[in-house]
C-alpha cells in the first residue's frame, strides 16, 4: 500500500496493492481526462514529483517517448506506485472531485484506520 499525494488537491490517498493510479483516483471519487485506460492513447499523462512507480504493462515509445519519461512523465493508467508518490496532474488533465460523498468517506476511513488502527467494521471496499 502506497500513499498517493495529489498536488493541488491537498489530499493523500492510499492506493491498494497493484492498483494503477487512475484506478485509485476513480475509486476515491476523482476524475481526470482518460480514454483507453490501457496505455495506448496517452491522455492520462501526469508528472511524478516524488516517489517511484512501475508499469504493469508495456507502454509504447510512440505513445510516451523517452524524452518525456526522462522528465518524470508517466501514463497514470498503467503506473502502479512502488513507494509513496506525489503526483501532479497537468491543467489539461482536469483532475477534479466528481463524487465528494465517496471522497469524504474514503478520507474519513483512512483517518480512522490511521488513528485507531482498525477499519470501521464491515464496510464496502469497492
Amino acid at each position: 500500500m502506497s500513499a498517493v499525494t495529489l498536488v493541488g488537491m491537498d489530499v493523500t490517498l492510499e492506493s491498494r496493492e497493484g492498483e494503477p493510479l487512475t484506478s485509485t483516483l476513480l475509486r476515491t471519487g476523482y476524475m481526470m481526462r482518460l480514454a483507453c485506460k490501457r496505455g495506448g492513447c496517452g491522455l492520462c499523462r501526469v508528472h511524478v514529483d516524488s516517489g517511484v512507480t512501475e508499469y504493469n504493462s508495456t507502454v509504447a515509445e510512440t505513445v510516451l517517448p523517452s524524452w518525456e519519461r526522462e522528465q518524470g512523465i508517466i501514463l497514470a493508467c498503467r503506473s502502479v506506485p512502488v513507494s509513496d508518490v506525489t503526483i501532479s496532474v497537468p491543467e489539461e488533465g482536469r483532475l477534479r472531485c466528481i463524487a465528494p460523498l465517496i471522497t469524504q468517506y474514503v478520507l474519513r476511513e483512512q483517518d480512522r484506520v490511521r488513528h485507531r488502527g482498525t477499519p470501521m467494521g464491515d464496510t464496502a471496499t469497492e
Partner: peptide, 8 residues
C-alpha cells in the same frame, strides 16, 4: 471500446 493496447 479499447483493446488491451489502447486500439479502439
Amino acid at each position: 471500446y479499447f483493446d488491451p493496447a489502447g486500439n479502439r
